[in-house]
Design a protein around this nucleic acid. Structure first.
Length: 406
RNA sequence: GUGGGCGUAGUUCAGUCGGUAGAGCACUUGUUUGUGGCACAAGGUGUCGCGGGUUCGAGCCCCGUCGCCCACCCCA
């Protein structure tokens, strides 16, 4: 027997229903916010992710499904969605237009990780990317959208925000931080020491308790922001307060991908185990330029669908559609005609095997049908069909020709 | 990559001191003439994950292996 690969799952029955429900809900809200659907290839040049996600990240460093294709191209299954959308934005030369573009997407992402609860090798994200709008109002609207999505899905969350600064203030802060870290490096863990050289900002969210105690005295990014970053961050908090969206400032919140600047945020749930981030995102004003496009400000986020599936409760499904069955072989032809006609307006479940009325009622009930239509011996000779509403229990007998000519 | 836990029916699991397997749920079909959900009855040959070992005898003990889960890490 061939099983799915490690960390890969089939979405079926209740899971696939949840998936569709989440995508439908999120898509509708995204469209209301002015986003249009974009679909980009799952396979991209490896260089795309190395340059966008960043070589220092674990994602690029050790988690990519990377291989040479038959044309000797170095390719990679996308580990996240933003890079592909940004690439598409540039490939379609939208960076040359002085306009705003907003896209939403969803689909499979691939990371070669050790699977656990809320972490799969093949998983799904829903995301939005907004290009050309540098105002912090857009950051706020994005957060507002995510809140709307979780509210619509009736999911509890807490929100953490931070500012990562920009190309003016971040390098200065980084220098300050590195010199602080150099002084205490002997007491920091191995990982932290490695990161001082590769990505010092990441030292801040080290999970090691000893490190965290030492880091309490570290210079804080939000105290070292330049004028514009500082006022934007203050503005964002004001907007959130006014909208009654509760949040916490987490000065150690560092997005794992290298391309973020300024606003960074993370939506957390406490009810799904240790992989608690259900949405995350922020501003990435320099990424378009990194990927050879014309400098364009951008903000975006992604939701982890599987993690949300662990939280969402499906709305109760109601009886719907029509069940058709015959009590004799001769009635099947008429039933097929009725089925094809009715399929234009509703779901139809057709049973080909003649069965007793009782057996048909049972099957219709199990199929979740709202109405049942049966042709027995009497109906066959009269050219009629017996119909019953399984909820109201109303019954009637209808002429088949009339039904077909409607 | 590092830990820990667990692999028995479609599924959730039970299986005592080692004596070659059981329950609930689900599924199918019935319960006599054309009225569903309930109830009752019937329907199981499952490589007990796989391979070795100990033993007269292994689902149970030992070793190996594979897989799954959870946690670290990382991230959505």
């Amino acid at each position: 027997m061939i099983n799915p690969l490690r960390g890969m799952k089939d979405l079926i029955f209740e899971d696939s229903q949840k998936f569709e429900y989440i995508i439908a809900t999120a898509s509708k809200i995204a469209r209301n916010y002015g986003y249009s659907y974009i679909e980009t290839p799952i396979l991209e040049e490896t260089a795309l992710f190395k340059r966008s996600v960043g070589e220092s990240s674990d994602i690029v460093g050790k988690e990519m499904y990377q291989f040479m294709d038959k044309g000797e191209n170095d390719v990679c299954m996308r580990p996240e969605g933003t890079a592909g959308v940004v690439r598409a934005f540039i490939s379609n030369k939208l960076d040359r237009q002085d306009a705003n573009y907003r896209f939403y997407y969803y689909g499979s992402m691939f990371r070669y990780e050790r699977p656990q609860k809320g972490r799969l090798r093949s998983f799904h994200q829903f995301g939005c990317e907004s290009f050309g709008e540098g105002s912090v109002y857009e950051d706020f609207m994005l957060i507002s959208m995510i809140k709307d999505i979780f509210d619509a899905l009736q999911i509890d969350f807490s929100l953490n925000i931070n500012s990562l600064g920009c190309s003016d203030c971040m390098p200065l802060y980084r220098t300050k931080l590195v010199s602080f870290l150099e002084n205490i490096k002997d007491d920091l863990c191995e990982d932290c020491n490695r990161r001082i050289a590769t990505n010092p900002i990441r030292v801040l969210d080290c999970k090691n308790e000893k490190c965290q105690i030492l880091l309490q005295a570290s210079p804080k990014l939000i105290n070292n922001l330049c004028g514009s970053c500082d006022s934007d961050f203050t503005k964002l908090q004001t907007l959130l307060n006014e909208a009654c969206i509760s949040y916490e400032v987490d000065t150690n919140l560092v997005r794992g991908l290298d391309y973020y600047n300024k606003t960074a945020f993370e939506f957390i749930s406490n009810n799904i185990g240790s992989q608690s981030a259900i949405a995350g995102g922020g501003r990435y004003d320099r990424l378009v330029e990194f990927l050879d496009g014309k400098s364009t400000p951008a903000v975006g986020f992604a939701l982890g669908i599987e993690r949300i599936m662990d939280l969402v409760i499906l709305p109760e499904s109601k009886r719907e559609g029509l069940y058709l069955g015959g009590m004799n072989e001769e009635s099947i032809n008429s039933l097929l005609q009725i089925a094809r006609k009715q399929l234009e307006v509703q779901k139809v479940t057709m049973e080909y095997k003649p069965k007793s009325l009782k057996a048909h009622l049972k099957s219709a009930d199990k199929a979740g049908a709202r109405t049942i239509g049966i042709i027995g011996d009497d109906e066959l000779s009269n050219g009629t069909i017996w119909m019953k509403d399984l909820e109201t229990k109303e019954e009637k007998t209808i002429n088949i020709n009339e039904m077909l000519s409607l």
